[in-house]
């Protein structure tokens, strides 16, 4: 099958990829662009391990063709913080034991990031509903919810700069 050239912006950088029309965004991210933070847990839109941000919306990148990402801005876990300055969500997940095996974590944090952008003052119920598209087998969610709530609180502190 013939390949097409796709230009997109990933984590603030313009990149080019070659992909067949049928290729999934998650595969192009992971295998061509070597962005291995987003994971594959199902390839059927159920688990959310592959969640990335596309033009300000959470998408499951196993359910987006790479060619659909032409001209889009993609943010993955790698683009949220860096080792010298972690994103507040990354800090709070560490602090509140919001992860165990870590496999769901990149998708979970990326989703939580979008959730807090859309709703900076979520109730626990809002968080539970808002991350319900991301499955976790290890934590039972209790500490994930705690981490997201703590991040929201931190981000809402007047002195906090993100």
């Amino acid at each position: 099958m013939s390949k097409q050239t796709i230009n997109l912006n990933v984590n603030g950088q313009s990149v080019t990829a070659e992909a067949e029309p049928r290729e999934l965004l998650i595969h192009v991210l992971r295998e061509q662009l070597e962005i291995t933070g987003p994971h594959i847990g199902c390839e059927t839109t159920h688990c959310g391990a592959c969640t990335v941000d596309m033009d300000g919306m959470s998408v499951k990148s196993c359910t987006v063709f790479a060619v659909q990402a032409q001209g889009k801005e993609i943010t993955t876990i790698e683009g949220l913080g860096d080792p010298d300055k972690l994103h507040v969500l990354q800090e709070k997940f560490k602090e509140h034991h919001g992860l165990q095996c870590g496999f769901c974590t990149p998708g979970m944090i990326t989703r939580a990031h979008r959730l807090l952008e859309e709703n900076p003052n979520p109730t626990e119920e809002d968080v539970r509903f808002g991350i319900a598209g991301n499955l976790c087998r290890c934590t039972g969610y209790q500490n994930i919810v705690k981490s997201v709530m703590a991040a929201a609180e931190e981000l809402n502190k007047p002195e906090s700069v993100t």
Binding site: R30, P38, P83, Q90, K94, H97, L99, G102, T105
Partner: peptide, 21 residues
């Protein structure tokens, strides 16, 4: 004690089998 594993996992830098290339 906070977990030492979490730095890499929260930054998407875990190394799982499918990440091996």
């Amino acid at each position: 004690r906070k977990r030492v594993e979490d730095a890499r996992f929260t930054q998407g830098k875990g190394n799982y089998v499918d990440d091996i290339k």
